[in-house]
Design a protein around this nucleic acid. Structure first.
Lengths: 339, 339
DNA sequence: ATATTTAATGCAAGCGGTTGCATGGAGTTG
DNA sequence: CAACTCCATGCAACCGCTTGCATTAAATAT
């Protein structure tokens, strides 16, 4: 059996409570005694029992990471895994643990979450998505359970902790990058409006136009349903037009790859005929041909920030609900050309 | 405060121990009483406290999922995330939980694992990789801690639980698929020999040649270091040879994409000049142009099997260390052509 | 009818910590 | 020097559940 607080107490010649207080660095224990106890702990290789400690102090230093349900979203490159890494590494360093919640359906996930809350296993959550009318978000919000969103909050935004990229700014920056390469006919390829990250990026794209006094051509923007392996006919038509855009901002690397394929089919060259800037800087951007210039959104950092927020709030319940913006940066590759 | 076993006991008019035994479906409680207790549990929405239960019964229904350290490997498409989903879903359904361990370095990960073991947080592990001379594997093995490998065990193979694809067979099948399309000049592109999955696939590739009495041309096989965005000059030379292979088996979708890029540079068309079969059937295979015919290795199932094994062994310590082979299947797309 | 077995349940001592309160001794004060 | 603080530590109850053993009542055997 592992070494317990009593063993340490015995060796140090103090009571278990003194050991416990030493672990917490309680000021009412003299530095002298603490040293003695620490020595004993080191000698025995003592590690406080996580479960016992949680049980006694009525908390659980455990954060639930909720994966989005939809299969499609899951695949979005290494995004999720990077966030998970970020969260986990930070949590481990602060003696918290994480547990993954992955349901086949929303109901299943909600069920799991409910029971984890009820049985005291998990007391806070990080959702790796943000969407409208999500029963999980509502549940957590209504029960007053601590949670953070990766992405932008829809409802209760003011009372919700979230960590996000400034997608509007990112969209603007991507577009400005192309404008600086003398592109004035820039298209946007994104997803349906309900996916906020895409519509924000698009909004940034228009902002850049306004600020640079470049007219915005509305039929230069194309909407793709969330399955980039089937690009709409509309796009092909756009590419075949004589007055087609000379550059595109596309909502993520998937669409970047899909656009590359379309161009190939139309006999257009990237970057000679068309320049492309995409988002996420996933491995896809690196491996595609040509490799894509892409906005890196720093997923690992998103995870770290979310974990930081959650732990700080867990330990200090009356902090205000913060919103954190993680900066992005452009990674230049071979998909853009100066006109 | 949440509802406890005492509340249930009080409502049902029995003792806490009876409630506890009812939860475990202990045969020494009469069916009649159990019904009464179950009713009370339902009425109160009782969920047993995970930590308390673990503390009392001296176990932790928690499985640590260890991610590989190397950044590069992490990215291998959706592989890891799918496995994590598989493990997590299965665990949740059996009332186990999972926790992710992600270290920046091997030492850091080992440190985390050590302390999780010592403080009783985790008592079994699933490693999402398998490599030689891994300090984590050695530690777990030497301490006699229950663990399973995804991949093929190197050392202690006979005493280790592992879940794997039959990569030799998969390599053979991929090759036979091309042979059946009348290809007789087939190349193999893989990684350095120390990556067993790659060398096994290559071995299967040769087996297929022998079985079909097709001579194996050794300079048709190319080895790439684990960074597929830089293909070796050797491959380009091979592609430019007049007697170049008409088809390739490549160790994973990354290499498939990389090969596509090389072909494009050499002015070769896939599938017209070169046919390609790759492995893993990741999103990369779907999105590349042309989409790649790829061997699906069923990652979610790998995760489920690993979790099943671990839980069974945890609950029944003298089971023999099993090896599980998860079947693969070929997914046909547009990268192959009949000669 | 009494002794003995058996089945069903309860008692109470843990599991390994935490923490409010009591305690004791050193230090301060008048 | 008695009275009083105050600081450092210990005591013991408790967190919610598990489980070996005792207990009781019913069933069976003698």
């Amino acid at each position: 059996m592992a070494v317990t607080i009593r063993d340490v107490a015995a060796l140090a010649g103090v009571s278990p409570s003194t050991v416990s207080r030493t672990c917490k660095d309680n000021p009412s224990i003299s530095e002298e005694t603490k040293e003695k106890v620490r020595l004993a702990m080191a000698k025995l290789g003592y590690e406080p029992n996580f479960q016992a400690s949680n049980l006694a102090s009525q908390n659980s230093r455990t954060i639930g990471i909720v994966l989005p349900v939809s299969e499609r979203f899951i695949y979005v490159n290494s995004f999720f895994l990077e966030i998970i890494r970020g969260i986990t590494q930070y949590c481990n360093s602060r003696q918290y643990i994480t547990t993954i919640i992955a349901g086949e359906t929303e109901d299943e996930a909600l069920q799991t979450i409910r029971s984890m809350v009820r049985n005291g296993l998990v007391d806070s959550f990080i959702l790796l998505y943000s969407k409208q009318k999500d029963p999980i978000t509502s549940y957590l919000y209504n029960e007053g359970i601590l949670f953070a969103l990766i992405g932008k909050a829809y409802h209760f935004a003011n009372q919700t902790i979230y960590v996000d990229t400034d997608n509007i700014l990112a969209g603007q920056n991507a577009t400005e990058y192309l404008i600086n390469l003398n592109h004035h006919h820039i298209g946007y390829i994104g997803y349906e409006r309900s996916l906020i990250f895409s519509s924000d990026r698009k909004y940034g794209y228009s902002l850049a136009h306004y600020e640079h006094n470049i007219p915005l051509n509305h039929d230069y923007s194309v909407e793709v349903r969330y399955s980039p392996n089937q690009m709409p006919e509309e796009l092909m038509q756009l590419l075949r037009r004589p007055d087609r855009p000379t550059a595109f901002v596309v909502a993520d690397d998937f669409l970047g790859i899909a656009l590359e394929r379309c161009c190939r089919e139309c006999g257009l060259s990237i970057p000679n005929d068309i320049s492309v800037v995409s988002f996420n800087n996933s491995l896809f951007a690196e491996l595609s041909s040509p490799p894509l210039t892409s906005i890196d959104i720093n997923s690992v950092q998103l995870g770290i920030e979310a974990a930081t927020q959650i732990i700080n709030h867990a330990e200090n319940p009356n902090l205000p609900s913060t919103k954190i913006i993680v900066p992005h940066r452009i990674v230049e590759r071979e998909s853009c050309k100066k006109l």
